[in-house]
Amino acid sequence: MMIIISVDDKEIQAEEGTSLLKVCLDNGIYIPNLCYMEGMETPPSSCRLCFVDIDGEKNPVPSCSVKVREGMKVFTNTPRVRGLQWSAFELIMSNHRIDCGSCLSRKACPLIKISRHLKIRLKPFRVGHINSGNEDIVEDHPCLIYDITKCVRCGKCLHICEKIHGRLYLTFAGRGVDMGISFFGDSDDETIPCARCLACVKICPVSALLSYERYEHSPEGSSS
């Protein structure tokens, strides 16, 4: 059933029960987001960037996990929403190595888009940069290279892997600042489909997961 909701005082038609974030994005209203992917039953809501204020709700809510209802009044840029988004974005950036010059994401990078949208610098000025102390680049997989210093832990690679293969060939391991992607136990060329698939490489928004081929063509890979 089609219903009408209002976002930032603009009326929008939407199918009842769709995710609010999707409705906004489809109608050209950008809400920062990193971990949401279309078709997710239960979005992880882990990036904490897609907050909106909804009339009648006490606190801002992540729009990816809200379903649209008739007559909903949504505001995407109230001061407290921005406050939450700034903090979340700074915390994400505190663990992201900013090296746009030799990064393969370049113009497609959602971090740059979000920083412009939120009018905030890429470099986190309140929290500084946290180095997890882990090895920067993990090369224990036959066809994938993982750079923990770039990873924003959005989890899109896990989602797509499970969707395509019905099981995980990579996972989040560790906890806190040490958390990162691990390929534990699946290093046998013969049994893993990774060389043919590379869906995780294509979905990675910040080029933290690369195939060897892409890595060698990147400025970073060819210099070392």
């Binding site: 995980l168 560790g174 534990f184």
Partner: peptide, 21 residues
Amino acid sequence: IKILSGHFGLSSCEIYGVATF
């Protein structure tokens, strides 16, 4: 972990992910 992965029908990296937490 490989033995467990066969038993529980999970991939070994999934079990590793749980254990490293």
